[in-house]
């Protein structure tokens, strides 16, 4: 079913809409959650929480891009769950490693400075992503938005592990240069 119909269905038949949403996006959200949390039980909980949150938010919200909407909610929920888990014990799937890789660039700033620059950085980040080739953008997004392991990314694009690692390394350097060029002090 088309996304816009699913959204409209939430306004008339929310139960059916939720089933349609689950049918279309469960695997996608599960994958996002699994990359972050690394175990199926937490992922199931995360996907259920996502469905609840969507149920509560549509209406009144009417998202234009449903894939991005549910993806972002799932990602946020999974990261929240990971933080709670990490407060008790160290660990946390690919996300920990992915965050560390980007640490010097996007997560190295103190919180106050981040708040001041966040909009500027987001715009610069979107410009950076928009200027990449489709493959480069896919590799970057899979690693740092979807938190996929590098080996999985390499396999997806039919490249060697070292080539995927090298491409990510180069993309981080380019992002850093772009942010510096845009006057964002890191």
């Amino acid at each position: 079913m088309e996304d816009q119909f699913i959204v409209e269905l939430f306004f008339s038949e929310p139960d059916s809409a939720l089933e349609e949403l689950r049918s279309k996006y469960e695997n996608y959200c599960h994958t996002i959650a699994f990359n972050i949390l690394g175990n199926n039980e937490d992922c199931d909980e995360c996907v259920n929480d996502m469905l609840l949150r969507v149920w509560n938010s549509i209406p009144p919200n009417r998202p234009e891009n449903l894939a991005a909407y549910v993806g972002k909610i799932t990602r946020n929920l999974a990261l929240d769950m990971l933080r709670k888990t990490n407060a008790e014990r160290r660990g946390g799937g690919e996300s920990q490693i992915a965050f560390e890789e980007l640490g010097d660039i996007l997560h190295g700033k103190n919180e106050l400075a981040q708040m001041e620059d966040s909009k500027e950085i987001q715009e610069a980040l979107n410009r950076f992503l928009g200027a990449l080739s489709k493959t480069e953008r896919g590799v970057f997004m899979r690693r740092y938005w979807m938190m996929e392991p590098v080996a999985v990314i390499a396999s997806t694009y039919g490249m060697s592990l070292s080539k995927a690692s090298s491409m990510l390394h180069r993309l981080r350097q380019r992002l850093k240069k772009q942010l510096e060029k845009d006057g964002i002090n890191l």
Binding site: E64, H107, Q114, Q122, R137
Partner: peptide, 22 residues
């Protein structure tokens, strides 16, 4: 603060469309 969560929706859409989720 996770700025990557605020990337433009079109990039997420592109990622979703090019992937088959098992």
């Amino acid at each position: 603060m996770d700025l990557l969560n605020e990337v433009d929706d079109k990039f997420i859409q592109e990622l979703y469309e090019e992937t088959e989720f098992s």
